[in-house]
Design a protein around this nucleic acid. Sequence first.
RNA 1: GUGGCUGUAGCUCAGCUCGGUUAGAGCACCAGGUUGUGGUCCUGGGGGUCGCGGGUUCAAAUCCCGUCAGCCACCCCA
Length: 445
Amino acid sequence: MSEISTKPPSGMRDFLAADVLRRRHVLGIVQRVYESFGFVPLETPTIENLSTLLGKYGPEGDQLLYRILHRREKLQRALAAGNATELELSDEGLRYDLTVPLARVVANYRELPAFYKRYAIQPVWRADRPGKGRFREFYQCDVDITGTTSVVADAEVCGAVAAVLHALGFTEFSIQTNHRELLRAFVAAAGLLPEQESPALIALDKLDKIGRDGVLQELAQKGLGDGGARLLTALEQARQPDALATLAASDGPFRAPALALQTLFATAAEGPAGKHLVFDPTLARGLGYYTGPIFEIAVAGLAGSMGGGGRYDGLIGMFKKQAVPAVGFSLGLERVLLVMEERGMFPALGVGPQVLLCRMADVPAPVAVRIASQLRAAGLRVEVFADTPQMGKQLAYANAIGAPFAAILGQAELAAGTLAIKDLRAGEQASVPAVDAAAWIARRC
RNA sequence: GUGGCUGUAGCUCAGCUCGGUUAGAGCACCAGGUUGUGGUCCUGGGGGUCGCGGGUUCAAAUCCCGUCAGCCACCCCA
């Protein structure tokens, strides 16, 4: 194959007009709702130092970082040394999420408000294997609040994403909620080691899919047989309706996190997230930096999640001496779009010119440009057909791009000071004085 | 990372089981029917080294091996 591939790289996409409009539609609502909660925007660079990125996402996360190769002399030096490691060949990488850059920014700018509420809508990159709703370049829409451990902050970030989903037209979705400390207490009580938490929870998460026996089998395979079985029993009990209240009333390590979740539910109940928050004792999120409540948005028919978040009181402290508590929530734009597309949730989104200005070959181009300018000044979206093929060609083009009107300019119109305006949808045509044309079209758009 | 499915025209696909002249269809595109009128209709046309590489064979889109890419499920995530 001598031709150059015209496809974008794996997991990355081009967006044509219709795609862009749908994305903008969603992003506009996200921005408006986030700002209504008092969040202010932040944009950070595409590229971060690897020292910023590494060690924040867990070992799997580090593997998924896109790293940027040294250039020129620096690369030559690293290669000349022989057996160069990844770290010696690169010291920068592409942003993996929006939370770690936020943590860096909070640590870097002392002048930020003590309670910093920021939103960020930017692409992130992960060297993942692409799949349905999974890409190597995708947009996250984050809200975060730093500087407070208050449950109000937890409830507000949940409320913000819930309000976005409502504004987009979602009614049925749940925000699965758990608490990192509660999980830790369950794992300890079952006699498992802290490092066994992750594999045990991955197996337990499949309870609904593969059933109790399937989970037990998988736990045994991982060498977590007895402790895993105890954990399964405990979590099954925790899924009962009043389990959270029981845990909150208990003594010992379950009490504090269970109380925290109860307080969160009671607080969030007064906001948009209210009825959507659901306690899920088996929810465990992969990112390493969560310390308190953790969230994941679940919607029927979507395998993955539409968003996730949680409290991470230790992350910012990795960048500066004093720890700063923080909580955040992230919506995955592509996941939202995927579900909205499947369900036909988009309104009609217009694009392209409302009027195509066509002209005969004997009409000078400057005249067409002048008339187009007049129509645009009146607020219409206008395209001037560049060439002057036969009128059928020009109208066929107008039809192909979906322009509802064509304005035709020939010697007859020039002499009379009119435009022949054709309504492509109705198939009707009228001769309209040029000065009235814009209003005539606007009335019918 | 694991398992499965699919790669044929710009797009959606047929043909492959059982190898046999110039590889087809619909849509899209171009031209004409209509030199100031689109969307419908009619006629004609351009466009394919059958993903890539190798093997078997007199002969490969078709059979075999490899490879790459895409999709689906799992894993993980947003």
